[in-house]
Design a protein around this nucleic acid. Sequence first.
DNA 1: ACAATTGCCCAAAGCGCTTTCAATATCTCA
DNA 2: TGAGATATTGAAAGCGCTTTGGGCAATTGT
Lengths: 342, 342
Amino acid sequence: MNLKEFARTLGLSQTTVSRALGGYPEVSAATRKRVQAEAVRLGYAPNRGAQRLATGRAMAIGHVVPLGPNPDIVNPIFADFLAGAGETCAAAKYEMVIAVTRHGEEADAYREMAMKGSVDGVIVHSPQIEDGRIALLRDIGLPFLVHGRSSGVDAPYSWFDVNNRRAFFRATRFLTDLGHERIALINGPEEMDFAHRRRLGYEEALLEVGLTVDETIMTSDEMTEPYGYRAACAALQTAVRPTAFLVSSIISAMGVRRAIVDAGLAPGRDVSIVTHDDDLSYLSNRGDVPLFTATRSSIRAAGRRCGELLIRMIAAGEGAPPVTELWESELTLGVSTGPAPQ
Amino acid sequence: MNLKEFARTLGLSQTTVSRALGGYPEVSAATRKRVQAEAVRLGYAPNRGAQRLATGRAMAIGHVVPLGPNPDIVNPIFADFLAGAGETCAAAKYEMVIAVTRHGEEADAYREMAMKGSVDGVIVHSPQIEDGRIALLRDIGLPFLVHGRSSGVDAPYSWFDVNNRRAFFRATRFLTDLGHERIALINGPEEMDFAHRRRLGYEEALLEVGLTVDETIMTSDEMTEPYGYRAACAALQTAVRPTAFLVSSIISAMGVRRAIVDAGLAPGRDVSIVTHDDDLSYLSNRGDVPLFTATRSSIRAAGRRCGELLIRMIAAGEGAPPVTELWESELTLGVSTGPAPQ
DNA sequence: ACAATTGCCCAAAGCGCTTTCAATATCTCA
DNA sequence: TGAGATATTGAAAGCGCTTTGGGCAATTGT
């Protein structure tokens, strides 16, 4: 069923039908109602391709998802982020198209999306400290919102981020307040901007209380469970073992916890853990007494908000100033922390 | 830059340029090469909307992702599945569009995709035992491939599945061979077809060796980590506690393991665990000695294959017979299992 | 009562592409 | 050498929609 047929069965012109469905005011309420009802009854909806061609807008946003650098790892937070963005998009009648690329090959995906006009804007995932995608997208002229930031980029751009630095600063201070002096950092890949910022917050807090920053108890890798386990095992076997771990992902934190237990130690008593918690639905750290003390920030809510901001940017058009938004994460108390053992 | 301009700068007709880029044979090799080179240099690619309108094909496949029934849970395997499907799509020049819907509201999403012509086919995720989506999609006439099966649907349809029943049959027999007689089943939501099938395999194996099926040590819920923990805690507190757990997801298995350790028991010695392992990149159960004994089947590979099959179906057109494919999962030995304690 | 407005609707142009049909130039083979 | 086949290119007709630029009644203001 196409517009021509549909309009004919209604005894109306294509113009009127299109306007009735599109919500334009030049249609009487009665006509609009009838058109909408018949559209549902007969199963008519305007063809997206034709609509795109006629309006020049794709009514879609894109996600280019880079796989992890080493093995092809998919960031597990992505599913939840997507669910959040999806809610916003559905409400705004936008589609989401996603492209998965190997690490470092995102550029082509962006260029193609722009050239083919398959999306009106994109969300940039997993920004690195020096991220060339930002300059690229500006050159291309495709509206974009970075989920995170890129410390190495000076020119203004639109981003949404969580205050990672302050979160890890607070988390570290929380541990030092409890008397911990040897705090291991199990961080994400250091070329990632978020990991960089978390490290800065951690170091800043240590220095503030006169502790030394010790490179040997800081690790950085793709945030898997086995990584957390391995890193923690290694740290626990050193001569002066850490009394606390600060971990960048709840998934790795599970591994850290396992290592602690395997070593015959009690999490929260012998060794403390604070982790960042993206509030993933399947690894919930909520409940009466959360398993982990954590800096929590819902990745799903972030997805929702990123969708909103990007769609607003697209509506605003080229000239509008960049939007930026920084959320604070909450520090929630769980059973994984306690005073440093004497 | 559009075709008209691009063709003019090349001194060729739109026809020839379109054909050169589209890979049609009626163009001389020299011309094609020149056109392709200039397209890259000048940054021209055919507009997707126009292409869709002209060809009637969207060159896109859709994923309608239902959130979990109770809280809005996103199945964590989805990110990996998508990465797999994305590889295939990228290679075949297909786009992927995804829609996230609340549980039970998928129908509208499918209808809309079909009516608007935004995709050429869809992958049906998380099929239930009685899944109305299959009949719906057949009525609509939108090509679809089910990832999994729906036991309650008789009419033929295309699906890709893992042999869940045999996997859990083998896993259970593996445990009974080790002398376990009280094996708890920590399953996914029972309305899900995969969970149903896994339960059948489990029961079949128990009956085969003369053990009774005990409903009180079988649980069924959204497969989160806390669920595994809670379920295992409860099971371990019963009068005759199970000596082994069979778990439907490695994420819940982490929770089960935690419960066992918390109870002062040793996984693999006091209590065994076998889990299904989707081979998620961030919860790798590989390595020299895997943490869990598991029925393993890569969800990423499944995504790749589903993409292939669906694209092939789309190419084959309406009349073609349904495609079906069943993969066996491998039973890998980890350190989470051992002989039943006396 | 008449002009000006408003409300509602329509015809037709055009978005950028693919593809049919036709034309021309070049080969092939007897 | 000339007829038929082949290789290569073009002109133009849509694909299904939105939107501009009217047109005709009914309503309003004076």
